[in-house]
Simulated assay, not measured.
Amino acid sequence: MDELVRNATARLLDSGNVAALIAGVVALVLVLNRSTWLPLRNVVTIAHEGGHAVVALLSGRKLNGIRLHSDTSGLTVSTGRAHGPGMVFTLVAGYPAVSLLGLGGAWLVTSDRESWMLWGCIALLALMLLAVRNAYGVLSVVVTGGVLGAVSWLASPSWQALCAALLCWFLLIGGLRPIGELGRKRRRGRAGDSDADQLARLTGAPAGMWMLLWYLVGLVSLVVGGFWLLLMPQV
């Protein structure tokens, strides 16, 4: 056990992993600070609505469009059966999509494939742009894709890795905060048509159970993704 701890500490103190740790601290500050969270929450909303859209298509539903709003809320509209597994899976997908995207990105970064992660995100944003139905949504997706494109084209490999790690941390940490925000809104009676409440009506399982499930997915993703970023070879 002592040797395992020493090896883990040695890896953590590697210069690349110290950079990954700093990126994690920066991401935590960005998520916790209200002035930075409000604009950057648009990135989380994009991933959230993208999760709804992808699962809707995979479950055989027709995707009608995605709207992203300036208050950082979003709406994904799909048509199909109003009940059944397809609708349930579509509603479930939004919140965990953010954390799972961060987890997948962390795996790519620690596998020395940060360029795959960045270009993969750009490709997903380009596809999402085809489904966005309002001007603010188009602006949000284009700006996000433009930033990632600039990093991919202009930054050196080491800076690409650092920026990709920062994005992963932001998604892993930021994926949890909206669930807490939803819980506070529900306690005030202001979220009666939330994903969790719609799932409760469809399945009979309480909304709190779905929120707990999303928290667990987010926490596991954060622990595993953080481990990969901090203790795997290099960032």
Rank of each mutant, 00 (worst) to 15 (best):
A8V: 11
A126L: 12
I173Q: 13
Q160M: 08
G16W: 13
G86D: 09
R188G: 09
L40Y: 09
L103R: 02
L91E: 05
A53P: 07
G24E: 01
R61E: 07
V141Y: 08
S115H: 15
A53G: 07
R34A: 15
V44W: 01
G84L: 00
A97C: 12
N7W: 10
T76F: 01
D14H: 14
T203L: 07
G204H: 08
T76N: 01
L129K: 10
L124W: 11
P206W: 03
S99A: 15
T72I: 04
R61L: 14
S221V: 00
V43S: 10
M209N: 07
V5N: 00
F89E: 11
M232D: 07
K185Y: 11
L28M: 13
P157L: 04
L30W: 07
G65H: 12
G204A: 06
T203R: 07
L32I: 07
R184A: 13
R113V: 03
L231I: 00
T90W: 01
R67S: 14
F89A: 15
L57Q: 09
V77Q: 12
H52C: 11
L58I: 07
V224F: 05
A150K: 05
Y215M: 05
V109R: 05
A47K: 04
V31R: 11
V138N: 02
L216W: 05
L202V: 10
L222N: 08
L130N: 08
D14V: 05
S140R: 03
W228A: 01
Y136G: 08
I173R: 05
V132I: 15
V223R: 00
G226V: 00
N17W: 03
L219P: 00
D197L: 07
Y95A: 13
L176D: 01
N7C: 05
R67W: 14
Q234K: 15
V142P: 11
R81H: 10
